[in-house]
Amino acid sequence: MTAASPISPKSPTREAAPEVLTFCLAGRDFCLPITSVREIRSWSDPTPLPLSDPSLLGVINLRGTILPIIDLAHKLRLSAARSRCDVIIVVACAGRLAGFAVDRVADILTFAPDALSPPPALANTAIAAGLSGMILAEGRCLPVLDATRLMPQQNRDRP
């Protein structure tokens, strides 16, 4: 099994100073609230699932849990082709787990609550659908993704 660098789920999540994990996806920066991130793993090839959403790359074994791997760049329609990813961000929300395939993980940032603004209207509806807000601080504009909206859909019955 490949090395994993767990992030303590007990990271301080004071209201005053939320933390986010920033990462790079198809050359652009995004971030996820640290509270939804379980761990960061190096890449392992997923087993493809039949007749599934093409942004669902397949499943891997996360210490016994079957973890779906989502091609985030594809899901957000940032690239047409499946991107070559090196890192999996394991996210947990609403009792479910998923792995987001990203290019690389950058940093953990703490920002002031007033730096967070609601999501703007975007031309890329796919990004807009997965966005919970924007962080505007220190001259940067960082989209904050909502992990729940990017998870595989639960009650979809395909032919």
Partner: peptide, 19 residues
């Protein structure tokens, strides 16, 4: 974690750790 998958009942993990 994955929702319903066509034709598939469940998964298992092989000796090499793959699903």
């Amino acid at each position: 974690n994955c929702g319903p998958v066509a034709g598939i009942a469940a998964a298992t993990i092989l000796g090499d750790g793959r699903v």
